[in-house]
């Protein structure tokens, strides 16, 4: 047994000729919030499914809460909660019935779930909604119920696959708040997302995946420091083409994307001095973030 919540070594998964997970290694420490980032098709969801023992790897070793996966995946899953990417709640059941029935899959008696129900509903901001029919719930409420469902077995570790996709800001902030509470209670959280802001706020460490490989791993702050200049100035406007030669010596790294020039620099002052008072250019100055790192590492090409 180890203190690591999840260990992954040399994991590979092929579909036909395509290697969706192409040899990845990472460790998630107990009690941390770990983010798995990557564009669509990077292999994030496949990695989660492999870690849960739901699909067979071609190669590699995994330990989930100390249990070897997939050999003892069932035992491991008994101590794990999962918030899947797509809604899989039972539309024929009320809120409470969804929780009771899901608890049975863990072998938890109905009265135990009923006893835990108020706390579960309170936590997911669904207090008093136990009898509500699923059809009457909004998208945000369904996601919160899915979170409550993932907690019926009081798991040590929570997998969340894109937990806030499609939610409005209020609903998203509530989920974030709850995730923080869970890590404060000592639970391990592993989430996939392509919202960099989300990862930057929540995760103590992130792994950026692309084409089935982990191309960067570390704390969001360390990744920003390691991979990118600390300041960004985004410039666009009709005078951009004429202004390009001025920018060149002032920003060590520039990216010209469509109508916009992204200038990355340690000291943005000379750039800003050139921009102030120009009517033909609009600009935004901001600190570099994880999204800049992500785009630098994975490129700007669309992934469909």
């Amino acid at each position: 047994m180890s203190a690591d919540a999840l260990q992954v070594r040399g994991l590979r998964k092929r579909y036909g000729g395509l290697e969706v997970v192409a040899g990845i290694d990472f460790t998630v420490r107990a009690g941390e919030c770990f983010g798995l980032l990557g564009p669509n098709g990077a292999g994030k969801t496949t990695t989660l499914k492999l870690c849960l023992g739901l699909i067979e790897p071609h190669l590699g070793e995994m330990h989930l809460l100390g249990e070897p996966v997939p050999a003892r995946a069932r035992e491991a899953r008994a101590r794990v909660g999962v918030v899947p990417q797509f809604d899989s709640l039972d539309p024929d059941f009320s809120v409470a019935e969804n929780l009771v029935v899901y608890g049975r899959y863990f072998g938890i008696p109905e009265r135990t779930i009923r006893a835990r129900m108020p706390a579960l509903l309170e936590f997911s901001a669904l207090a008093g909604r136990g009898d509500a029919k699923l059809l009457t719930l909004s998208g945000g409420m369904k996601r919160r119920l899915t979170l409550a469902r993932a907690l019926v077995n009081d798991p040590e570790l929570l997998f969340m696959d894109e937990p806030t996709t499609g939610l409005d800001p209020q609903a998203r902030h509530l989920i974030w708040e709850r995730l923080r509470q869970l890590t404060q209670r000592g639970k391990t959280v592993i989430l996939t997302t392509h919202f960099m802001e989300e990862a930057e706020r929540l995760c103590s460490r992130v792994a950026i995946m692309d084409h089935g490989r982990i191309i960067a791993l570390g704390s969001p702050r360390a990744l920003i420091a390691e991979h990118i200049e600390p300041q960004v100035v985004e410039v666009h406007g009709p005078g951009l083409a004429a202004w390009l030669p001025t920018a060149a010596p002032l920003a060590p790294r520039r990216e010209h994307v469509g109508e916009t020039l992204f200038c990355y620099a340690a000291d943005p002052e000379p750039l800003l001095a050139q921009l102030r008072g120009r009517a033909d250019l609009t600009y935004i100055h901001r600190p570099a973030n994880l999204e800049d790192v992500f785009l630098k590492l994975t490129g700007r090409d669309l992934r469909d």
Binding site: A78, L89, D90, Y105
Partner: peptide
Amino acid sequence: VQRTWEAIVNAPMT
């Protein structure tokens, strides 16, 4: 359609 099976196998069910 409802992904009920998917939800079930996330629990300790095969």
